[in-house]
Design a protein around this nucleic acid. Structure first.
Length: 427
RNA sequence: GUGGGCGUAGCUCAGCAGGUUAGAGCGCCAGGUUGUGGCCCUGGAGGCCGGGGGUUCAAGUCCCCUCGCUCACCCCA
C-alpha cells in the first residue's frame, strides 16, 4: 500500500494544497467569520488537532460512522491510541471539562477535520471547519443567537441560495418513546423500505427518515413525527427557538427528517443546505444542541449548543453563485533594478518598513522581463533604477495602470513620493 | 467498503480503423525594440503518452493487472 516511490510525490488521497489565489478566499472567509463571532463576544479556542481516541468515542459515539469507520487512529510512540479530530465539538467539550471556564462559555474555532472516507465532490479526508460552541446554558436564546450568527455569516459571503432547515430531536425523556413508536410503525411498512434499510429498523430508525431513496421517502409518508411527540419542556424550547428566528427575520424550513449523525445531539438541530451546489454534498453547515455531551464525557452536567461550517463547501457555493471573487490587494510598487539587484534591496526594504506593499525581481532578469513582471504583479507603479538613475541618485517612477507616464524623484524621496501618490502606507 | 467515468507538455485538450522524429491553444523563457510592461510577430525550452506485463513486424492507440484522479452510494462540513 506504500506510495510508488518512482513517481512524483503526491498529497494523500482526499487532501489538497490550497494555493494563491484560491487561498485568498480562505483568508477572507476566516477573517470575516472572526469579525462576525467576535461581535457577539465569542472567544477563539485553539485546541489540539488530535486527542486520545477515547475522547471521540465517548463524545461522538461508537455507533456513528465517523467514529466507527472513518477515524484516523493510530498508536503513538508511547502506545497511546491517538485520533485526528474528525470534528470540533468533542475536543471543545474536553477542553471545557479540563479547564472549566466560566459559563456560559462562548468559543469559536477554525480547524481541519479528518475522516477516512472516499472523497467526492465537496468531501475530503481533510476538510476545514469554522465553528462556535456555547457551553453552560440551555437557554433557547442561545439556540437563536447561534443560528442567527451562522445565517448572517453565510449571507455575508454573498451566498444566497441556502436553505436553513431546523428540527428538534427531543431529549432523553421524549425521544426514546418516539423511537419505539417509530420502530413499530416502520415495522408495518418494512416491505416498502429500500434494500439498505429493510433490515435495519432495529438499529437507529431515525436514520431511515433521512434516507434519500424513493422507496424510503415514499414509505415514511405519514409516519409519526418527532416534533409532534416532544415532551412539554422540549416543545416549549423548540417553540421559543422558532419564534425567535421569526422575530429576527431568519427564514427556515421545518424538516422533521433532519436527523444528525452524532449521538450527542438533543433538542435543536439545524443544517444549511446550499442549493447552488450541483454536487451531492451540499450541506455547507450544521449543528445543534447537545445537552448531554459534557456529562457523557465525564464532566459535570452541562448543556451546550454549536455549529460548524465547512469552508470547502461554502466556497463551492460561493463559486457556483459567483460571489467572493475579490482579489488580494496588488503591490503598491514593483522595483525594477538593472544595476545588479542591490538598489532594489534598499528600496523595497525602506518602503516595506514604511508599510507599503512592494515586490521586486530576482535572478538578474533583463529590464524587459522585469517590466513584464511589474506589469503582471498589478502594481500601481514601477520604480526603475538603471545606470543613469544610479549615477544621479534618482529613481524613475513609471505609472503602470493605463498608459504610464513617468518622472524621476530623488532616491531619498521615494517614500514621500509614494505617500504623495495616495498610498498611506500604514496597514 | 461498493459501483461508473477518466489518466497524452505547467494548464485545457487533439491524436482519425495500431504505422515515420507525439501535436495545438494558453502559460513559461528569449529575441524583434542594445533603458521600459500591456498588443503583435519570430524562435525556444518543456512529454518513462500514470506504472507493469501481454498481443503484434510495429502500441499513445488493442488486452490484462496495478496505481492515481474523479463522480456517485453510505455518511457527513
Amino acid at each position: 500500500m506504500d506510495a510508488d516511490v518512482s513517481t512524483e510525490p503526491r498529497a494523500p488521497t482526499g487532501t489538497h494544497d490550497v494555493l494563491w489565489p484560491e487561498s485568498w478566499r480562505w483568508e477572507e472567509l476566516t477573517a470575516s467569520f472572526a469579525r462576525q463571532v467576535e461581535r457577539a463576544n465569542y472567544g477563539l479556542v485553539v485546541s489540539p488537532m488530535f486527542e486520545y481516541a477515547e475522547i471521540f468515542r465517548r463524545g461522538i459515539g461508537v455507533d456513528s460512522d465517523v467514529v466507527g469507520k472513518e477515524m484516523y487512529e493510530f498508536a503513538d510512540r508511547d502506545g497511546r491510541v491517538i485520533a485526528l479530530r474528525p470534528e470540533g465539538t468533542a475536543s471543545v467539550a474536553r477542553a471545557f471539562i479540563e479547564r472549566r471556564p466560566t459559563i456560559p462559555w462562548k468559543a469559536w474555532y477554525v480547524t481541519p477535520a479528518f475522516r477516512h472516507e472516499r472523497p467526492q465532490a465537496g468531501r475530503y479526508r481533510q476538510h476545514h471547519q469554522l465553528g462556535v460552541e456555547v457551553l453552560g446554558s440551555a437557554d433557547p436564546e442561545l439556540d437563536i443567537e447561534v443560528v442567527t450568527i451562522a445565517a448572517d455569516f453565510i449571507e455575508g459571503t454573498g451566498v444566497r441560495k441556502v436553505e436553513l432547515k431546523v428540527n428538534s430531536m427531543g431529549d432523553a425523556t421524549c425521544r426514546p418513546a418516539y423511537v419505539d413508536r417509530l420502530r413499530e410503525d416502520l415495522e408495518k411498512r418494512k416491505a416498502l423500505l429500500c434494500d439498505d434499510h429493510r433490515g435495519r429498523i432495529g438499529g437507529n430508525p431515525l436514520r431511515i427518515l433521512d434516507c434519500k431513496t424513493a422507496e424510503c421517502q415514499a414509505a415514511i409518508e405519514g409516519v409519526p413525527k418527532l416534533v409532534d411527540s416532544l415532551c412539554d419542556p422540549c416543545a416549549a424550547h423548540f417553540r421559543r427557538f422558532r419564534e425567535g428566528l421569526d422575530e429576527l427575520g431568519v427564514s427556515y424550513t421545518l424538516d422533521f427528517r433532519l436527523v444528525r449523525g452524532f449521538d450527542y445531539y438533543s433538542r435543536t438541530t439545524f443544517e444549511f443546505t446550499a442549493h447552488s451546489i450541483e454536487a451531492a454534498q451540499n450541506a455547507v453547515g450544521g449543528g445543534g444542541r447537545y445537552d448531554g455531551l459534557v456529562e457523557m464525557m465525564g464532566g459535570p452536567p452541562t448543556p451546550g449548543i454549536g455549529f460548524a461550517i465547512g469552508i470547502e463547501r461554502l466556497l463551492l457555493a460561493a463559486s457556483a453563485e459567483g460571489t467572493m471573487h475579490e482579489h488580494p490587494p496588488p503591490p503598491d510598487a514593483f522595483v525594477v533594478d538593472v544595476v545588479g539587484g542591490g538598489a532594489a534591496r534598499g528600496i523595497v526594504t525602506e518602503l516595506r518598513r514604511a508599510g507599503f506593499r512592494v515586490d521586486r525581481a530576482f535572478d538578474g532578469r533583463s529590464m524587459k522581463a522585469q517590466m513584464k513582471l511589474a506589469d503582471r504583479s498589478g502594481a500601481d507603479v514601477a520604480l526603475i533604477v538603471g545606470p543613469e538613475e544610479q549615477a544621479s541618485g534618482v529613481v524613475t517612477v513609471r505609472t503602470l495602470r493605463r498608459h504610464g507616464g513617468q518622472c524621476t524623484v530623488p532616491r531619498s524621496g521615494v517614500v514621500a513620493e509614494m505617500h504623495r501618490r495616495g498610498h498611506d502606507g500604514d496597514e
